[in-house]
């Protein structure tokens, strides 16, 4: 239990620093910046007490906002995917109820975990770019940026999860 708190705190701080100091300046092909900090949302243990998780995800987004001067864009998007994480997971796994304590992203099959990550990343990036552009005229840019950035984010986050988490 205690190691769970330590683990998640380290992951929180590590992902924020990685995001704001390295990944916000990657500029792949001139404009792609992967947003890896949402891996924290994927990996946070699923429990019945979900309020703490909501508040922490809000703080995660807000920390990124502080660093990148973006108002509350990241906070809004991160909070939203935190809220829909459980319903999405249930829909992907086609289960109504599952073992909350023993759940681990590495324990479910790769295809399902992949689908879960794709859905949440696409929604998150779409909210971010919609709020950033904030105009229907630039819907093309929004969708273009969402798809390309999501691709990079998904590849890096899956590689990261496979490399840095223990297999059960």
């Amino acid at each position: 239990m205690n190691s769970l708190v330590v683990n998640n705190s380290f992951r929180f701080i590590g992902l924020v620093l990685l995001q704001v100091l390295v990944l916000n300046h990657v500029n792949l092909f001139g404009f792609l910046n992967p947003m890896i900090y949402i891996v924290w949302i994927f990996l946070f243990p699923i429990r019945k007490n979900k309020s703490l998780f909501l508040i922490l995800s809000f703080l995660l987004g807000l920390t990124i906002d502080f660093f990148s001067d973006s108002g509350g864009i990241n906070a809004a998007a991160t909070l939203f995917i935190a809220f829909i994480r459980l319903p999405v997971l249930k829909a992907v796994l086609k289960k109504t109820d599952f073992d909350y304590l023993l759940f681990n992203l590495r324990a479910i099959s790769f295809g399902k975990a992949f689908l879960f990550i794709i859905i949440l990343t696409l929604i998150h990036h779409f909210i971010i770019f919609s709020l950033e552009y904030f105009s229907l005229n630039s819907i093309n840019s929004i969708i273009y940026n969402t798809i390309l950035t999501s691709g990079i984010t998904i590849i890096i986050s899956i590689l990261g999860i496979i490399l840095f988490s223990k297999k059960k």
Binding site: F58, F66, G71, G72, I73, A76, L79, F80
Partner: peptide, 23 residues
Amino acid sequence: LETVAFIFIIQHHSYHKSKFVNS
């Protein structure tokens, strides 16, 4: 929480009010 986030976004858009969330 979502409302709080949107208040920050709107504050950020108006030029002189982004007192809280900035680097």
